[in-house]
Write a protein that binds this DNA or RNA. Structure first.
Lengths: 225, 225
DNA sequence: CGTTCATTGAAACGCTTGTTTGAAAAAATA
DNA sequence: TATTTTTTCAAACAAGCGTTTCAATGAACG
């Protein structure tokens, strides 16, 4: 034997990390109920008991994964929003700048995660559509604060618009964003091959413009009455 | 004993019907994987074996339910579209009329199903986000034809717009519609009670205007270049 | 080297899942 | 009423689930 030959598939990353990454992929593809501890263990090249050893339970594993994926996006959102505010001096950011700060960070993360590119888009969208109740709780924890911030920012940008109209249109804009993220993988089929889903930036930019237009036109026609 | 007293909870409808309705409610609330044959049987006041007897399998039961719920909506869509075309004579229907015919029938069905009002909205949206592959197949069967028709209609309404732009914006509009349907039950929480989800018509009308505005503005700015 | 601690591994634990069975009941048909 | 067909029912089936157990293994340290 020559000096302990390297094991054929020696894991480069810690088991914990591989488990989280495997969980992210499988959750995005199959949802919470479709994700099994056995499939996670297999995908991560780990033992079945490893996930319970490192995280305690399936719920805790998924929560840890979601927290790790979502928190950076939210931080980036706030950063971009602050950037826009400082760039404009005392002027409130425009609707386009506001929705850019909301949606663009998702595109950045999608582009960063080179492996199975659109997995993250599905993952983000799935956190909103999963029927499992503990995910709803986590979801509220992560997003209710963000929602409040964006409502306030839009109120400053449209000082003449009625309160409930801003709420309604922000709700529609966020829903559209999530729907588009969830449906994006169907773009090619839906358009019979005319449009392809390869370019992350193009899709994100189109989405930003779409919800910005829907928001502005809706708000303007409501405050014109 | 006095002339056979009526059984306390004597089923008024056939078991088959009760099973389908129970399936619809539970599928909307818990998704495909969260729906169990036992929960269906319990909700429908039927025996566990009844569903397999009447439908053969869980998959067949869910497919039957989806077909029954979705087909009427699609027929109504085509009817409304034809109505708009005849009303306009030789002129192509406007974007608003087109998206009205696409979205309004959902509102009609939601209003019709008085019990658990928003269940149908969730159900429609869930057929698009469920990760189970056989649902995707059914989905394609039901919607690819409709998608083609709407693409053609929008091409007539915007003859100067590039092909791929119409595809892109129709995709965004449909995605927004689905996202809004899926997220609607969160409206109250999301807006901290400012907006409530009681009025079906208001939500549907807002949604139609939102996607119409997003579509028109996006198409116009793309063909202006 | 010997000891301690963290991690892995294979097997098993209850439990729930979709589905099947065969007899009982009900309904339909003659 | 007698016979056939359809429908219900309780019980069981194998398979898959999350989780636990405990011995084997690895790494870290004195």
């Amino acid at each position: 034997m020559i000096s302990s030959p390297p094991k054929p598939a020696k894991p480069k990353f810690a088991t914990r990390r591989r488990l989280i990454d495997a969980t992210a992929r499988l959750f995005a593809e199959h949802g919470y109920n479709g994700l099994t501890m056995r499939s996670v263990a297999h995908e991560a090249d780990a033992n079945l008991a490893a996930a319970n050893y490192h995280f305690g339970s399936k719920d805790a594993l998924v929560l840890e994964m979601l927290s790790e994926r979502i928190q950076p996006i939210n931080k980036r959102r706030i950063a971009l929003l602050e950037e826009a505010k400082q760039r404009n001096g005392k002027l409130a950011p425009s609707a386009h700048e506001i929705f850019h700060s909301l949606i663009f960070p998702i595109g950045e993360e999608i582009a960063r995660s080179s492996k199975s590119r659109w997995s993250l888009a599905q993952l983000v969208a799935r956190t909103f559509t999963e029927p499992v109740c503990f995910i709803e709780r986590m979801h509220q924890k992560f997003f209710s604060q963000i929602a409040k911030i964006y409502y306030q920012e839009l109120s400053l940008a449209f000082p003449n618009a009625p309160t409930n109209e801003i709420h309604w249109h922000l709700h529609l804009a966020v829903s559209s964003m999530l729907g588009a993220l969830a449906q994006h993988r169907r773009l090619r089929d839906f358009t019979e091959g005319v449009c392809s889903e390869e370019e992350v930036g193009e899709m994100i930019n189109r989405l930003i413009r779409f919800v910005t237009n829907g928001f502005i036109m809706g708000i303007n026609s409501s405050s014109a009455e």
